[in-house]
Amino acid sequence: MSEQGSKSKFQIFRAEDAPGLMESGHMKVEPYTDLQRQWVVKAKEAGLLEGDQLKVLLDIPGFNLTYAWLKKEYPLPLHSHDSDCLYYIIAGDVRIGTERLGAGDGFFVPAGVPYQYTPGEDGVEVLEFRTVSQFNMLNLSKGEGFWRKAVDSLNATQDDWAQAVPPSKKLTHLQK
């Protein structure tokens, strides 16, 4: 939805109608260094773009809600944004620092604070809450070591990723 709507206007949104985060133009990726650009190309060739699904569910003045599904071991680089973000885990789990967080847990990342997390064995689905529509992503993984490991991991996970379903769907199937 666009910023033309009012915060006080009742709105319904459907995930199936939500645009992709990159297609929506809400997130600007800061320019890469030459080394980052070289490795991002290799990561894409190894299947990076098959490892996530990002959809902007709602965008109204002062409130933005994005859904993200990252498949297992998705190599999310150390990065920061220029806006605060509150993350709520719907299903699956992540490792962030020394902590393991699962469904119902969350974390808050203030603007400008570097962070990264690693999705667990079933991947992770999160909701991202922001108070702005436009924000940037500054990739801080500058060393070749991270990128080499990421490309190796991508090559190893492609078969699993091809069969992957969001962890919330696994729960639904198990309950029936």
Rank of each mutant, 00 (worst) to 15 (best):
G5R: 01
S6G: 01
S6H: 02
K7N: 03
K7G: 03
S8E: 13
S8H: 06
F10E: 08
F10C: 02
F10T: 04
F10V: 05
Q11H: 12
I12Q: 02
I12N: 01
F13A: 07
R14M: 05
R14F: 04
R14N: 15
A15H: 07
A15S: 05
E16G: 00
E16H: 02
A18K: 06
A18P: 11
P19F: 03
P19I: 03
P19Q: 07
P19H: 02
L21Q: 06
M22G: 03
E23W: 00
E23P: 02
S24R: 00
G25E: 11
G25S: 11
H26N: 11
H26D: 13
M27C: 12
M27R: 10
K28Y: 08
K28D: 15
K28C: 08
V29G: 01
V29C: 11
E30R: 00
P31W: 02
Y32V: 02
D34N: 00
D34T: 01
L35E: 15
L35C: 08
R37W: 03
R37C: 10
Q38S: 12
Q38G: 00
V41D: 13
V41A: 14
V41Y: 05
K42T: 04
K42G: 04
A43S: 10
A43N: 11
K44F: 09
E45N: 11
E45Q: 11
A46P: 04
G47V: 11
G47W: 05
G47Q: 09
L49R: 03
E50A: 12
E50V: 02
E50L: 06
G51P: 10
G51K: 02
G51D: 11
D52G: 15
D52E: 15
D52V: 12
D52H: 14
D52W: 15
L54H: 12
K55N: 15
K55T: 13
V56M: 03
V56I: 10
L57H: 02
L58Y: 06
L58F: 06
L58A: 14
D59E: 14
D59S: 15
I60V: 14
P61R: 03
P61M: 13
G62K: 08
G62W: 04
F63W: 10
N64P: 15
T66F: 05
Y67S: 08
Y67E: 09
Y67T: 04
A68I: 07
A68V: 07
W69H: 15
W69C: 14
L70R: 11
L70K: 06
K71D: 10
K71S: 07
K72W: 02
K72D: 12
K72R: 06
P75Y: 04
L76V: 13
L78P: 08
H79R: 03
H79P: 05
S80I: 01
H81G: 07
S83P: 03
D84F: 11
D84C: 14
L86I: 11
L86Y: 04
L86E: 07
Y87F: 12
Y88P: 05
I89V: 07
I89R: 01
I90K: 01
I90L: 14
I90E: 13
I90P: 05
I90G: 06
A91L: 04
